[in-house]
């Protein structure tokens, strides 16, 4: 089990990171298949429970991708997300979840190669950290 492929959940904003992923796709940029993407209308609507759920269901890492500050389609949802997520990082660390497993990045709609690079880097980080928790032993 220790060598299993890392599972990564990416929660991404419809207006930027998701579009960047689309661009990466149409540009034939390859990124690791470990990443499972979930599209949100804004990172500001990502409640902490979605991130907690991802970890409890066996994700080894969670990536949140939003618009650059100032570019939010809904004015400031991304900044709110950053604030909320920073607190969650502090919280999860106390439960033995390495803050490195959990990252927030700004990737604009035109940044296809940036998206690819981020996915590769994050997947490498998570692979180095190894599996997070054996969700089989969880009561949940």
């Amino acid at each position: 089990m220790a060598t299993r492929e890392p599972k990564i959940i990416a929660l991404v904003c419809n207006w930027c990171t998701y579009t960047a992923a689309d661009l990466a796709g149409t540009s034939r940029l390859i990124y690791p298949a470990n990443v499972r993407m979930v599209r949100f209308m804004c990172t500001g609507m990502i409640d902490v429970k979605y991130i907690i759920k991802a970890f409890l269901e066996g994700a080894d890492g969670v990536f949140v991708g939003g618009c650059h500050p100032g570019d939010c389609h809904y004015i400031n949802g991304n900044v709110k997300a950053e604030r909320r997520i920073s607190g969650l990082q502090v919280l999860l660390e106390q439960f033995g979840i390495d803050p490195k497993r959990f990252t927030l990045k700004w990737i604009g709609a035109s940044e296809g190669p940036e998206f690819q690079r981020n996915m590769q880097e994050f997947t490498r980080t998570i692979a180095e950290l190894g599996p997070q928790i054996e969700s089989d032993m969880m009561i949940l």
Partner: peptide, 17 residues
């Protein structure tokens, strides 16, 4: 699956909120 479900989820989420 244990029922009631989502016990850990409940406690962690309440804390995060």
């Amino acid at each position: 699956v244990k029922i009631p479900t989502d016990t850990t989820m409940f406690h962690l989420t309440r804390m995060a909120h």
